[in-house]
């Protein structure tokens, strides 16, 4: 599927509903629009919760700290495949962080950063994950809110 500014819903809304019956919690992908290198609007229409976001980031199941290190002294097993998250809130705006989580490949097709909120353009996804984004819209917003607090 070609990437558009509104990637999944819009014209494909009915199709998306048919194709994604097992999306977590019955949630279909929220539409979003990209401005420059950012998604300015919250995916949920609400601000995320930074405390929840921190818990999500340090939970290995969400894969962040497999590649990134950061200010998580309780975790000894952090990766170095990707930049340290310390100070990431100074380097990027909230909107820039949001796009980098949602679909970093839009900015750099060669990136190893998975697209955490995308279900199209993927090959051979295991059945358990098929049609599901890696993170929900609310989880993305919580993580964005947390990353924005990392100022040093």
């Amino acid at each position: 599927m070609a990437r558009s500014a509104i990637p999944v819903v819009g014209g494909c809304f009915a199709l998306a509903l048919l194709a994604l019956p097992r999306l977590a919690g019955g949630e279909e992908l929220k539409s979003y629009s990209v401005t420059g290198d950012a998604i300015v609007e919250s995916l949920t229409g609400e601000a995320g919760d930074a405390a929840r976001g921190r818990k999500l980031v340090v939970d290995r199941a969400n894969t962040c700290i497999l590649c990134h290190s950061g200010p998580f002294p309780e975790d000894k097993f952090q990766g170095d495949l990707a930049p340290n998250l310390s100070g990431v809130g100074n380097r990027w705006s909230v909107g820039q962080l949001r796009l980098r989580l949602v679909d970093a490949s839009r900015l750099n097709p060669g990136t190893i950063m998975p697209s955490y909120y995308r279900v199209d353009g993927l090959d051979r996804v295991a059945k358990a994950w098929s049609g599901k984004p890696i993170l929900s819209a609310r989880q993305i917003e919580d993580i964005v809110a947390y990353l924005a607090t990392l100022r040093d």
Binding site: G79, L81, P114, L122, V125, A126, I134
Partner: peptide
């Protein structure tokens, strides 16, 4: 391939010196 959209080469050619 997969939900994480990674090929073998992304890690084992390009990032084998990392963790």
């Amino acid at each position: 391939q997969g939900q994480l959209n990674l090929a073998c080469t992304n890690c084992h050619d390009d990032n084998w010196d990392k963790h």
